[in-house]
């Protein structure tokens, strides 16, 4: 079995898995590096361009990991959404 799962069925995708946790760690690291990378690049320091380059790779990696899972969650959830909206409206109107 591959370390990163990229084929999800709806039930599997609903659980919080290691793919989520990898992205939870990667995402703030990318924000932090982007901040530093942009600042240094705009001052034409070479380190800035290297950091921005690393960020672009990490952004691609993050999307590669999480996009299939988000798609699976969305696909499944949209099927149930209509019924949930009805429930929500009943609740706002004190009908349940």
């Amino acid at each position: 079995m591959k370390f990163i799962k990229r084929n999800w069925d709806a039930h599997e995708a609903d659980a919080w898995t290691k793919e989520d946790w990898i992205v939870i760690v990667l995402s703030p690291v990318i924000y932090f590096l982007l901040m530093v990378g942009f600042l240094l690049s705009l001052l034409l320091f070479w380190q800035g361009f290297v950091i921005v380059g690393v960020c672009i790779f990490l952004i691609w990696l993050m999307h590669w990991i999480i996009n299939p899972k988000l798609k699976a969650i969305s696909r499944d959830y949209e099927k149930k959404q209509k019924e949930y909206i009805k429930q929500l409206e009943r609740s706002v109107r004190w009908e349940e």
Binding site: A10, H11, E12, D14, A15, W16, T17, K18, D20, W21
Partner: peptide
Amino acid sequence: DDYPPTTTGTG
């Protein structure tokens, strides 16, 4: 839908 419980979830 995933009953019986799966063991992969970490959250």
